[in-house]
Write a protein that binds this DNA or RNA. Structure first.
Lengths: 238, 238
DNA sequence: ACTTGCATACTTCCATACAAGTCAACACTT
DNA sequence: AAGTGTTGACTTGTATGGAAGTATGCAAGT
């Protein structure tokens, strides 16, 4: 018997519980804008698509609703939520606050192993060809996780992950918008200041790094107004 | 027909969707230590208790697992998770970071309406009799929400709420441990510094206020070692 | 032409049945 | 008496059927 069902490039392991797997798959598809805002996701349709029953699909929906990625309107349908401008701003704020404190702590204590690890990661980041931002996003993720772990707050990053999805959706839409090299420079500065143990500078470097999305956000919203929930136009009212 | 089913003091509105209601009820019961750590929650049992089928119960379970309050071991049972010491520390860290930034922003801008609102709330807090900490926790919650809202980050508080449940469980266990008057004094200082627009002092006041739980945590863990996941004993290994 | 009413085909939500794993008690063998 | 195998009553995971609400297209009336 085949343990793996491959559909749309996403595989499902039929031996483990299906619900949680679907949650991850759908979550990823939404964040990566494979499932577009406003598009409809019907339970029976997805169930058929993945070769399972409606119940696990439904359970995946529930968690995605809690993460603000789906909206289920009873007896009407389930839809991919448009990006909530407010949610993005709030998520960014939370993330800045937390990561600023993480960097603070790191710069105060200092750790040479950490520094060399980070430097190696930055070298990797520089090796990413300009044309493949997906790879960079992956490395960027790893960079920030490393900081959180080193500060002794790995779980705090887990909390952030849920929040961060709101920001990531924007990143995956804009993609070519952000200049990788600029972000890498900022990473470098953060590491520099941590190494020098200049707490305030390190903190400020992280803060401005995480404020970067604020620059692209208005442009993105202009380019893809339909993807956003709180656009100026109110045409989308029911 | 009766729209309300009252069981164990928790009411269920049969007209709205049952799943989300159960989520709230069970969440509350866990945080308030009505459902104790390690205790077993079987789906059919709760279903019967609330007069619904297993499915909504199950859906409530899923979100509570995501919040780290339940643990479901397939084919074995569903259990109230013990309090994860690490999770508490991480949650506290995140909360301090976020609320520090909130206070920072408030102290920088200033708002007289906010100040008088907060002062009124503090007056209310003072009127709480020493013997009823539940009421104080409620007011404390409101105090912090007010700050978040005023800073324009209401949604950030929603995120915190999920995280905060880990801390709240500790609070509801220790209960008489913390001295209300001390906390109120800290509230007062926070408001004072916001009013005076002394940003650093306000921030520091909030930080030390939120560090308060660190004082009681070791004592609580000593008093109720069975309630914690990362106690020194490793007997609970599977 | 335009509105109104209804039939139909959807949707989610809940209830129920079945499948598969786990655990404990008990009978049986050694 | 100690160990082993089996049975049966549990658990959660999945599948499926029905209930209630919603949108849509069409026919009939104004």
């Amino acid at each position: 018997m085949l343990a793996l069902v491959d559909l749309n490039g996403w595989k499902l392991d039929q031996l483990k519980a299906v619900g949680p797997q679907l949650r991850i798959v759908l979550r990823s598809r939404i964040i990566r804008n494979d499932l577009r805002p406003m598009s409809r996701l019907s339970e029976p349709e997805l169930a058929k698509e993945y070769g399972v029953s409606r119940q696990p699909v439904r359970e995946a929906f529930i968690t995605l609703v809690n993460e603000g990625l789906l909206e289920v309107r009873p007896q009407r349908g389930t839809f991919v939520r448009r990006i909530d401008f407010e949610a993005v701003l709030n998520a960014r704020f939370v993330r800045e606050a937390v990561e600023a404190d993480i960097v603070r702590k790191l710069a105060a204590t200092g750790n040479s192993d950490l520094i060399s690890d980070l430097r190696a990661q930055i070298k990797l980041q520089k090796s990413v060809p300009e044309g493949s931002p997906e790879r960079f996003i992956e490395l960027d993720e790893r960079f920030h996780i490393t900081l959180a772990r080193a500060a002794g707050f790995a779980k705090a990053w887990d909390y952030l992950e849920v929040i961060k999805s709101q920001m990531d959706r924007v990143r995956f839409i804009t993609f070519e918008e952000f200049q990788i090299s600029k972000l890498i420079d900022q990473h470098e500065k953060i590491v520099d200041f941590i190494e020098q143990k200049t707490v305030l500078r390190a903190e400020e470097a992280m803060r401005s790094h995480l404020r970067e999305i604020l620059n692209s956000l208005p442009r993105v919203q202009d380019l893809y107004p339909d993807y956003f929930e709180n656009s100026r136009d109110i045409s989308g009212e029911i």
